[in-house]
Design a protein around this nucleic acid. Structure first.
Lengths: 336, 336
DNA sequence: TTGAAAGCGTTACCAC
DNA sequence: GTGGTAACGCTTTCAA
């Protein structure tokens, strides 16, 4: 392996001079610089990032904590992150979180500059004390799709999202509108679904519609599970004429259940989802679109900016817009 | 930041002893060990991976080179990789490849032990000389969904996959079977699609069916593009009664095009895809299933095994099974 | 069984 | 402008 020492010898200069050339210091004469550059090229020299990191106290790496398996939408966000990181000099290290234990483990190791220079947390709620450990350790953190004190966040207004979806259904004339979302008591503390439910309840109340308890169901963020739950929902006495699913993944499960029950969408039942993932446009699903890809990209950009400027990023919340995408799964209810 | 030195001082021992404890050397007395362990716990000490890597000559990191954006199926493979790496002590560094230039860049930096201890290449063909640089640099490489000499690979038999799909359609009685795949002249040198086309052509010939040149079309690995190409296909003189799409992403485009043309699937036209991704079961797509998740998992396992044993892994090709999944997009052609 | 010290490849401070 | 050298935090010989 060729080191800075070899380059120095080959170019007939000192190690520090080579280092200066590498780091583009202005305190090198043009001739020396070109001689060193030639030596570097000739020997195919590349600085050892480990040694560099040890000396510098940082490692040119951005860590991303993400519930990779739990949330399909996380992938789309991750894509945005990847895109933003592409032109940067930072490596992207993935910390997958499958369980709450997992999360604590990663958090414990990551609040030091030698693991990652900065951290991006996707969709995962972080307790305030854990969050504080990062700021104390001077590790910049950006939160995407989760809230937190004192750090920049990229979020959407989930309550408003719930309103948008429900308002759309109510405006079409629906009265028995069901809600299918994630259990508010989930292990990770995911709260988006609960927020959307809040918006749903608010609009229902304001429209003078009653939320029958049997019309609110919880299911894991998974198509098949949502399908099963919807089948129960549809087999009961009080049938909804519309369903608001807190995610598109779940909405496709609702669609499948309706189909299996011999119901026609949207004539027999309307369905609204949330996210607008790849599958949604294919399924013709009416949904509340949130900019997944963009959220990841923006989050990464904020982090990179903080990293390159060396400043702690402002703790402002960037609220990304939500938008109703009307496709073919919603229509006025049938006349009885 | 607490270092090994602090721990040593706190426990009243030498640094090397602490190091031995960390690395589970047997040459430490039980009492000393527990004293050191206590100090570690008390000070919340964690070894600096950078320093450790520099000293050790490796960095406890696995690099994954993956066309993250180009191929949707890569994500599913990546999930498998993530699962396999979860219980390991290795970090997962993502190297996204969006362009051939991108690939060369990453390859250039990665053939050294200081960037990654081992490498996983997903779906990306690597020129033999680039591959050789890794083996020369003693960096273990495992190829998933690509072939290469001298390194372990995890693949499927794409030619056979093409046969399976086409045989299914031919057995149903179809004669004018179209093929939609990726352009064999693509920038990356992806060849799976071309292989599947080979299998398609072989079965067509053996069945005495002619492959009309107008019935073979190329489109990017993208639903909308595939849809556009299919629209052209369906608007021409000789209409196919069945389409074999080289990927499910493209197959959903075919489905959308047929729907837009007012055709009913499978009555008017049959469609077979390839991969069996998440969307396929939802769409009821008949497809050739390949174990995406499993391929990533196996690849990562092979790499980890090689890494922990310190041995160069055997250069054998693990061929994963392919399987026809019959759903509701294929049926015998209508009688004319 | 333990500790002192050299070394891993780099950067940065201090002389010249 | 440039070179020598101490540091960065760890592992690993080598002695004791």
């Amino acid at each position: 392996m060729v080191t800075i020492r070899d380059v120095a010898a080959h170019a007939g200069v000192g190690e520090s001079t080579v280092s200066r050339v590498i780091n583009e210091s202005p305190r090198v004469s043009p001739e020396t610089r070109s001689r060193v550059l030639a030596a570097i090229a000739e020997l195919h020299y590349r600085p050892n990032p480990l040694a560099r990191g040890l000396s510098l106290g940082r490692c040119q790496t951005v860590g991303v904590i993400v519930p990779f398996f739990t949330h399909a939408s996380a992938v789309e966000r991750l894509r945005g992150v990847g895109a933003a990181m592409d032109d940067s000099r930072y490596d992207l290290v993935l910390f997958n979180v499958e369980s709450p234990l997992h999360r604590s483990e990663h958090v414990a190791t990551l609040h030091r500059r030698d693991r990652a220079d900065g951290l991006l947390v996707l969709s995962l709620p972080l307790p305030p004390d854990e969050l504080e450990r990062f700021t104390r350790a001077q590790v910049p953190v950006v939160l995407v799709d989760t809230r937190g004190e004192g750090v920049p966040t990229v979020v959407t207004d989930d309550i408003e999202g719930g309103r948008i979806a429900t308002r759309h259904l109510a405006a079409l004339g629906h009265e028995r509108i069901a809600f299918i979302g994630e259990d508010p008591d989930n292990d990770f503390g995911f709260s988006s679904s609960a927020q959307r439910e809040l918006g749903y309840r608010e609009v229902m109340r304001d429209a003078g519609l009653t939320v029958h308890p049997e019309l609110v169901r919880y299911a894991k963020h998974d198509r098949r599970v949502a399908q099963r739950v919807t089948e129960q929902l549809l087999s009961q006495r009080v049938r909804p004429t519309a369903v608001f699913a807190a995610s598109d993944i779940q909405a496709t499960g609702v669609l499948a259940a309706a189909r299996a029950a011999g119901m026609h969408v949207p004539d027999d039942i309307s369905v609204v989802g949330f996210d607008d993932i790849e599958i949604s446009s294919y399924a013709g699903l009416t949904t509340v679109r949130q900019p997944l890809y963009e959220s990841g990209r923006l989050g990464a950009q904020l982090l990179l900016r903080a990293l390159t400027r060396g400043e702690t990023p402002g703790a402002d919340a960037h609220v990304l817009p939500l938008e109703l995408v009307e496709r073919s799964t919603t229509a006025p209810p049938k006349r009885r």
